[in-house]
Structures are given as structure tokens and as C-alpha cells.
Design a binder for these strands. Structure first.
Lengths: 228, 228
DNA sequence: TAGATTGTTAATCGATTAACAATC
DNA sequence: TAGATTGTTAATCGATTAACAATC
């Protein structure tokens, strides 16, 4: 703001809640860029991302001043700055552990590849699966994991194994050098300091919906589709 | 607290952050019950759920006073009260829309069925899939959705279709009477008031990890596995 | 200059946490 | 009674929001 900061690596501390929304803004900007919009206002972008405009402006202000008062944001420029802030101007190598239904679904998910991530391998404890490919991603024996992580400089691991195996897999990934984990197993993982874990908990999500649902029922339960 | 509230339906307002943690406590209690523990302290339960003990006690206090000072919590009793608070003492019927990799993975996920949910159908726009079963869940033509939702009293829908189709599917589900949606499509959904949406955004999760990962690198980038 | 829209301030709200009195 | 552990208080912290001055 005072012209002191270098234009290169961003050093500001960004609140966690803001970090969690940057991907949403990036996606909204991508959609606008596809529609060939060159400039957009905070109101438009906020609507496209599904958030409040004041919140969006506050969030973006943590990255710097990339808008123009009276005009709006340059779509391409803001897109670049958010991508740089997230750190996906470079590609990240990712391994998925567990080649079951979920692991295969994740490997086939085109959204990863197009958003700064390369799935370099699906790993499974069953060595008979090795050699197969799912959506272009090779399956390897989990025993080969350390070699793959080292060679491909993998820092992010996705856990798609049963809960009972999740902690052991985590320990092995961390020992191999992985420092970020996305956990789909319904288990609490313990990791050393410096390793980040995010979890996606499918049945928790449904239970949270059920909580709110059970508080709506009262009226609708008997009358059913009366007020559609 | 003052003995005024009925023992049946809980009327207290529970903070959203607390609601989001109740499923974690429930899972931790289930694990303790499997281990045949009859009583546990807030410290133990907090450790099992991966949260701070003070936070756990504050959270549980919103449900009522179900612990015993100097002793701890009765595992079975607390389990029942949390399940009742969430509203999963009864079963909820759920449909999954989209019978692709992800939809099939979700249908096969045993965690749902064992936690108060019944997946009554996988729905797909491709009518040639109809009649097949995935992990015991029948696939139906999406055209049959309104009938299924009405007959099976479905209130929760899971969206596992491409982003481009997500809004239309949402509108159709809502028109059929679904009032809670779990969205896996990378799209912002608009719904009328009274309908809850939760989203699981796989590439956002990876991007959030990448953000933190790119701020760790500095030292490790060159030295690699020096400080394992 | 007049209109538009950002970036920032300040007030509000909700969540976290440590500490400890209540009480088994 | 002495030890243990809950339930609650109060302080702190972080996130949200509206409003508006700055400025294109």
C-alpha cells in the first residue's frame, strides 16, 4: 500500500477464512474470462462466487490493490494475482492413496488437472492392480510410494483408503516427505507440526444437513408438497 | 438447565460451529463404545475427536448437562443425546444424482448407511443405465426422480453431476420437494429460502493446501528431505 | 465535473480458550 | 473428606458487514 512491498512474492498474512474463499473467486473469474469479460465489478464477481460484495472486497484487499476505483477489476490481472497468491502458477504433484471407487473417481476428476494439480499416481496396497491406468493415471503398488514421492517431488497426498488404514498411510506419506494431506477417510489423523491436514467428511456433511432438516420438518412433515 | 425444558425435542439454539462438530463427537463415541468403554472424560473424548477439551465441553453444554462432575460422560447416554440432537435417531432417505465415478463411489460408501442415511436411488440422465445396481443401490432414470422423492419421502439430495448440469438438477430436486442438498459439482447453486446447500469442493481443498504448501517451500525446496 | 466503484474503517457478531467454581 | 472433572464465565480472538471517504 505504501509502495514498499516488492512485486514478486507476497508476504502479507492472509486470514484463513479468506484463503478458503480465494479458490471460489478464481473459479468465478475463470467463468467470466470464458465469457470474454475483460473487466468486472466487485458486485458481479461476488454474485458469481456466491458471496457478499463487501466480503469480497475485504478479501481482495489482503492481496493488494488490483482494482480500479470507478471501474472494477481487470479479469485477467486479478486471475493471475489470485493464482500466484495460492501458489498455482506452478503445478503441484499429487498422489492418491487407495484405488477403490473413491480413489478412481478422484483420479478421473478433470477439475484437478485443470486447476494446477497433476495426479502422478494412484497407490494401492493390492499389488495386482499395479500396471493398470485410470483416466491416464497409473496405479502403483503402495510399496513404491516413497520412490515416486521423491522422484516426482510430491508434496500433497490424498487419502482414499478405509479408516482403519488411514493413520498408517499418513505416517508413511509423511515419512516419504509429503507435507499436505487431504483426508477422505473418516478418521482423526495425527501428524507432526508442519504437516497440514484437511479433511472431507462425507457422512458429517449429511449429518449437518440432517440437523437442519430435522428442525424444518414440523410443518412440512404432514402437509408435504403443499407449498412448492 | 433450569428444569423447564421438556425431555423430548430440543429447542436450544446451537451455534453452527458446534453443529459441525457434533458428528465428530458421535464418531469418537462410537469408537469408544466399540472398545467397550462405559464412561469417558472430556479429555479422552476431545483427544479422540481431535479437538480441545474446553471446546468440547462448551459444545456439549449447548445440548444440556449429560456429564457427571468428577466422573465424566456415560458413553451410551451421550451418544444417544447427540444422535437425537442431530436428528438421526430416525433414518433419512437420500438420492444421489449422477451415476458416474463419483456417484458410484458415494453409493458404495458404507459410512452413509451405518450413520442414519439410506441411499434409495442413484439417478442418471442416461436412461440406459436404469435397472443396474451399485452396491445394492438401484440406478433409475432421472425422469423418475419426482416419483421416487415423493414415494420414499426423500428430503436430502446429493449432486454428483458435471458443473454445467448442477443448477438444473438442483431446480428439479427442489421442485420435487428436496430441501437439503450436498453439492459435489464445482458450481455455485442458487436455491430458494428454506433449502440448505452444503458443498464439497475437491479442487478448492487442494488449492487451500497448495497455498500453505507454497509458503513452506522456501527452506525445503532446495534441501529436500534434510529435516525428516 | 458527475457518476461509479474500490479500499478501508469501525462496529458487530460469533467462536475459541483458559480458568475456576460447582459438585459428584 | 479429598480428588476429579464438569459446566460456565469472561476475556480474547478472528470474521463479517455496512458505510463511506478516496479516487478513477
Amino acid at each position: 500500500m505504501s509502495g514498499l512491498e516488492a512485486s514478486g512474492s507476497p508476504l502479507r498474512e492472509i486470514p484463513e477464512a479468506t484463503v478458503a474463499r480465494l479458490p471460489m473467486y478464481l473459479r468465478a473469474l475463470n467463468a467470466l474470462a470464458d465469457g470474454e469479460r475483460l473487466v468486472c465489478s466487485s458486485d458481479e464477481l461476488a454474485a458469481a462466487a456466491g458471496v457478499n460484495a463487501a466480503k469480497l472486497r475485504k478479501d481482495l484487499s489482503y492481496l493488494g490493490s488490483y482494482g480500479t476505483r470507478g471501474v472494477g477489476y481487470d479479469v485477467e490481472l486479478l486471475r493471475f494475482h489470485i493464482a500466484r497468491e495460492i501458489g498455482i502458477t506452478q503445478d503441484w504433484s499429487v498422489v492418491i492413496v487407495g484405488a477403490g471407487h473413491l480413489g478412481q473417481a478422484l483420479a478421473g476428476f478433470s477439475g484437478f488437472t485443470s486447476r494446477g494439480f497433476e495426479i502422478v499416481a494412484l497407490l494401492d496396497a493390492d499389488p495386482t492392480l499395479a500396471g493398470q491406468q485410470i483416466a491416464g493415471v497409473p496405479i502403483h503398488d503402495f510399496a513404491d510410494m516413497p520412490a515416486i514421492v521423491a522422484e516426482r517431488r510430491v508434496t500433497i497426498g490424498v487419502i482414499a483408503v478405509p479408516a482403519a488404514a488411514a493413520q498408517q498411510v499418513t505416517d508413511d506419506l509423511v515419512a516419504a516427505g509429503v507435507t499436505s494431506i487431504l483426508n477422505f477417510a473418516p478418521a482423526v489423523l495425527s501428524v507432526p507440526t508442519g504437516v497440514d491436514v484437511r479433511k472431507v467428511d462425507l457422512s458429517s456433511e449429511l449429518q449437518i444437513l440432517a440437523y437442519h432438516e430435522s428442525r424444518k420438518g414440523a410443518a412440512a412433515d404432514n402437509g408435504a408438497e403443499a407449498t412448492a
